[in-house]
Structures are given as structure tokens and as C-alpha cells.
Design a protein around this nucleic acid. Structure first.
Lengths: 368, 368
DNA sequence: CTGTTAGCGCGTTCAG
DNA sequence: CTGAACGCGCTAACAG
């Protein structure tokens, strides 16, 4: 029923080996022969059997791209960018030549699913794997992932991190493009402090993520630098032992709803905050909604800032002050490294700068 | 170097066939034997060779999900939802049992790349393919796609459309979940008309997309129903032969920038419009920005409406009136159909309702 | 319930 | 430059 290499060979009056050689193109074949073969391919509408080919060659043309949440443009942009470098433009014939099949796998942020996908990719003998976004900070999982990646690399799969810090165990088989989340977080809060803010709420991401931790650390660093850290809350409210900044930090998932609720909570705990920094733009949007629903104006009553500079942030009203991450560029670069089109950064690790984008959602606090 | 099924068999003191049977789970095996085999698998850290398995079984566990633009949450949400139904939750071991590998392929809206991906998926002997979003309306491409899909279906690949109208040639091998774009577009404009708007600008999507056409047709239908269609523009401006509504419609890509520029253009052509309907929410955001940059207020001076009800629309200020599409539900259902967990709709085609969401961005026009 | 026997369709030697 | 033979690792009949 299905047409095989042998059928093509028969029609082109050559041996199967010759057909294979034309198709893979990495072997000298007489022009006239190649012509005949290609005609036969088209005539018969032949499509290479991927599994058979991969089995014989011991490699496949699959490249995996792992993301935490594909519905989030943060990942969509990186993954799409990586795919542009991997999928190849095609030759327009739909015949599919040497292209790789770049495939995006949605882990939902679950380390188990991440491992499962890696195994699936390993099973397919993937040519490369790109892991995007922050990692979960759990020693057992980190170790499991690291071991799995080592085995993949061992089998010839190229591994690239994108927007993800290098493995803590210093696995050198992996090229890593890490975002400067800490620096970005620091500069953002420094900006707020420079405006005159002293009481700044922070809506953090899920507690066990590297991204969350780094951004929060940057925030705290800036506060400390301004001598704000130790400032006590009005004693009598909140946990006695908890510092003011601790009370002003609320963790939650990276979504709008979390930003909304965390902001209400912060406003409840400390009605005198003059600014809210959010872990990312999506969360910031929720924060804005909460601020407005409480009858407060942005930025006159409260400043709000985000992180990532996703496309919609400029359309918030007022436009969101945020930290720009070059998601597309980073994704594309990761894709190129995965394809071997570009060399990994020296030392295997590159830190990608984060740029402060000052817009309308932040302003000096009301006169105290 | 790499451990094979035979190695596992040797260690478990059974035949390769038995190992295969416990791994695939679809054949009776004594509990004690299975136990031994699984232990051997873990001991040896064995990972099934996907290509070999696919070759022998003549099917793979790959499921493709084609999207036009993965950076757009419209597709991200559907694709992510589909993947939840396909990837399976995993058993937490990272060992990867019978799960399918759901992979997202980004076509960039290009029919060539769509074809290429289909070929790649065909080459991999994919178990199923889900095509999401509007199709390009070009007869040659439609025919090519249809032929390719027929061949895929023929080889046992299940095909599901999600948010995409059925093939015009009535290819019955495909299950289609189509959005009621026309009905949604109609109801949206009816809402504007009911508010009292008569001069309504329309920012349409790319001209050759089914989604674009259907939404625009719904819009025109509503105008016609209200007897607005024939209303002439002030003669002397614009193409002599063009009707008023034609002049008020500007096409462009489904992105923010296009919404911005198209809206400026509409405002230039017809400064007296009182409402702008956009082809989708992203475009509507750009339209809002343009309206504001022209010094006009929403909705007092101009009403703006979107389409899709993406998560951020409720956070626009004022919140965006739009048409809600159940993207997640549709994606999940498509995923289930692709997996054979749910039967295709009767006749192979289901139309999914679109719900009008009235929010703050639309209001009656200023007193005329 | 388990072992044995054949291929699945292709890439890659090795000769010519 | 081309053809013939072999085997990649696994599943699917068959037997037992």
C-alpha cells in the first residue's frame, strides 16, 4: 500500500542505495541519475519513512523545545523564535528536505512532565533539546533532570537552555542562555526607590522557581542598597517576627488572577504601600486591576511595575513600566545553537541583559 | 553502548518479546514476570528506541498540533489545551509509559510551511494531527492540503480541525470543530448598532484567511440587517466607486501594530466614525492605543470592540467588549478526538458558539 | 502466559 | 559513481 524506497528505486531503474543517496544528498550521484530518481519520487508521491530512517541512521530530525506554559506569550515568543531557526524555511514544495522537525512540549511547569518529555525525546533520539524558562528548585528534581540531560548529551543530543540558569551541578554539556533576572529586578526597584518610594509591595511568582527567586533577590538587593530592608512595620499587625518587607511580599502563580489577589492582600496588610512590583507583566495586569478596583489611581496613588515587557504591556493604561527581556532574540539564538549553526557562548554560559523600560505606570508617590 | 531490549530481556531472564509486552502493556503477562522485567528496565536505565518501535509497529506515538503563530495566546491556549489531553499526566516516574508525544508546530501562517510540517509528520507516521486556526483561502493550497490530509488519513493518521472550517471539498476524513466566527461578528456589530452606532470602522485581518472573511461577513450582515450598508460616504473623498463601508474596512495582519495603523487610517478617511470593531483582541488593543493617541476617549468619543476574549482583554482600560471563544475547551476537545478518547461530532463537523461579552469599551455614541 | 521466527524500511558498509 | 548485502531494535504473528 505505502510506497517505499524500493518502489522508487524500481521506477527509476536504480538500486535502493542510490535513491537513499539522492535523498540524503550527502553523497556524489550523477546528475542524470539524480534527476530520474527525483522524478520517480514525485511520480510516486514518495515520503521517506522517518522511523526506518532514524533506526538505520541512529539519529532523528526531531528537536524538542520544552516550555512551562505555552499559553503564556513569554514562552510562545521564545519557542516560536527557536522554531524559526530550526524548522527551516522549507523549499516551498512541501516535499520536506533536510529540515528538522521542531516541536514544542508543554510541561505545565511540572518537573515530572518535564522529565517525561525528556524521556520521550530521548526515546525518539532527538537531535537537540531546548529547555526554556525558569527551573523548579528542588534538589531531587534538579538531580534527576541533570542526570537525564547527561544521558541525552551522551547519546549525541545537543542541549540548550534558554532563559534558564545553568545547572547547579555545573553540567558542562549544556549551553545556557540565562536572563539577568536579578539585575533586572534590582534596577526596577532602584527606579522605584529613586522616585521616592519606600513602602513597596512585591507580588512574587511561585516560591520554588529560579526566576521567582532571582527577581525577588534583585528587588531585595535594591531595597537593602537603599537602607530600606530593616524598616519595621507598625508593630501589632502581622506576625511579630516577620519583617516589613516579608509582609509586603506575596507569592503566587504567574497569572493575572494571582496578581489580582496578591495585590488585594498586600493592600490589606499594608494600606500605605505606594508601589507594587510584580513578578511579571501578566501578574502586573492583575495588580493594576486590583488597585483600580480598590478605587486607587495608577500612578498617582500607587505605582505598578511588571517584568518581561510582553507585547501587551505597552497597551496597559497607563503603559506599564517593566523590564525588557529580548525573548525573541534569545529564543532564536538558542535555536541556532541547537542546530549547530552558532557556537555556544564561551564557557557554555551567557547572561542576557535585561533593560529597564520606564513608562507611565510609575511615578513619585503622593506627598507624604 | 546503548542498552537494548535484548539486554533487558537477558537480565530479566525472559525473551525480548516478553519485555516488549510488559512495556506496551497491551498483552497479558504474569505479575511476577512483569515485576522482574520492570526492575531490569530500571536497573539498566533502559529507554525504548522510538524509531525502531515505530518501524516495527508501523505507527508512532507522535501527535502534531499545527498553529499559525505560537506567540499569540489565541493559539497558545488551544495548543496547550490539546496537549493536556494528549500528553497524559505521566506517572510521575519520568519513565514514560504509553504517552503520546504531543508536539506543536508553528507554521507562521504560511501554507508552504503548513505543508512541510504535514509532510514531516507524515514521514514520522504521526498518530494524529490537529490543525488549528483559520486556513488560507487559496484554491491551489487548499487542494494541496486536502490531498495531503487524505494521504495522511489513509495511512491511519487521525485528523482534527480546531477553530478551522471544514475543507471546502468536503473531505469527510477530517473531524472539524469550527468557531461561529460569522455569528459572533454579526452579534458584535448588532450590539454596536443597538447602541446607536451607524458609522463603524472595521479593522480586518489578512484578506485571504477564512477567519478574517467570516468575521467580516458577520459584521456586514449586521449592517445590512440594520439597513446601513448602502449609506454613502461624503462623495468627493475616497474611491468614487467604493461604498462607505468599504472605505471603513482596513485589512492587516493579526497584530497590535496593524490595529494601530489601520485605526489611524480609518480615522483619517472618516473622522466621523463612532465605533471601531477589530478582527481580534490584539488588534483591538492597537486600535485603542491609536484612538487615545488621537486624543479621543473610549468609549465616550469612540467605542472599540475586539474578538476572542483573550485573557488580557478584561484588563484593557476600559475593559474590552469582545466575542468570547471557548479556546481552551475547543482545544481540549480536539485533543480528545485526536486521541480517540471522544467521538467526532455527528457528520464530522461541529460549530462552536461564540458569546458576546459586553464590557466598558463600548457605549452609545455622543449625541449626534 | 511465554519463546521463536520473521520482517518493518532504510543507511551503510564493501565491492565493483 | 553505482549495486548487493547486512543489520539497526523492535513488534507481530505463530507455536507451544
Amino acid at each position: 500500500m505505502t510506497v517505499t524506497l524500493a518502489d522508487v528505486a524500481a521506477r527509476a531503474r536504480v538500486s535502493p542505495a542510490t535513491v537513499s543517496r539522492v535523498l540524503n544528498g550527502n553523497y556524489p550521484v550523477a546528475a542524470s541519475t539524480r534527476e530520474r530518481v527525483l522524478r520517480a519520487v514525485d511520480d510516486l508521491d514518495y515520503v521517506l519513512n522517518g522511523p526506518a530512517s532514524s533506526l538505520a541512521a541512529a539519529t532523528s530530525d526531531l528537536v524538542g523545545i520544552l516550555v512551562n506554559d505555552i499559553a503564556d506569550p513569554f514562552f510562545g515568543i521564545m519557542a516560536g523564535a527557536a522554531q524559526t531557526q530550526i524548522g527551516g524555511p522549507g523549499d516551498g514544495s512541501g516535499r520536506a528536505g533536510g529540515e528538522k522537525l521542531a516541536v514544542i512540549c508543554n510541561t505545565g511547569g511540572s518537573p515530572e512532565r518535564e522529565l517525561t518529555y525528556l524521556t520521550l525525546l530521548q526515546r525518539q533520539r532527538a537531535a537537540a533539546v531546548v529547555l526554556t524558562g525558569g527551573a523548579v528548585e528542588n534538589e531531587a528534581h534538579q538531580a534527576a533532570i541533570s542526570a537525564k540531560l547527561a544521558r541525552l548529551a551522551d547519546a549525541g543530543t545537543r542541549i540548550v537552555f534558554c532563559g534558564r540558569p545553568p545547572l547547579s551541578d555545573g553540567n558542562a554539556l549544556v549551553a545556557a542562555l540565562a536572563f539577568d533576572n536579578r539585575g533586572g529586578g534590582r534596577r526596577l526597584t532602584e527606579h522605584l526607590v529613586a522616585l521616592g518610594h519606600r513602602r513597596i509591595g512585591y507580588v512574587a511568582g511561585p516560591p520554588d522557581r529560579t526566576t521567582t527567586r532571582h527577581r525577588l533577590e534583585g528587588h531585595r538587593e535594591a531595597l537593602r542598597g537603599a537602607g530600606i530592608e530593616a524598616e519595621p512595620g507598625d508593630s501589632g499587625a502581622g506576625d511579630p517576627g516577620a519583617g516589613y518587607q516579608e509582609r509586603l511580599t506575596v507569592h503566587g502563580p504567574y497569572d493575572r488572577r494571582s496578581g489580582y489577589e496578591a495585590t488585594l492582600e498586600i493592600l490589606r496588610r499594608a494600606p500605605d504601600v505606594t508601589a507594587i512590583a510584580a513578578a511579571n507583566d501578566t501578574v502586573a495586569l492583575g495588580a493594576c486591576a486590583a488597585v483600580r478596583d480598590r478605587g486607587l489611581r495608577i500612578p498617582q496613588d500607587i505605582s505598578v511595575a511588571g517584568f518581561d515587557d510582553l507585547p501587551f504591556s505597552v497597551d496597559a493604561v497607563p503603559a506599564l513600566t517593566t523590564v525588557r527581556l529580548p525573548l525573541f532574540e534569545a529564543g532564536a539564538r538558542a535555536g541556532r545553537i541547537a542546530m549547530g549553526k552558532e557556537n555556544p557562548p564561551p564557557g557554555g554560559i551567557a547572561t542576557i541583559a535585561a533593560e529597564l523600560m520606564i513608562r507611565g505606570s510609575t511615578a513619585p508617590p503622593r506627598a507624604v
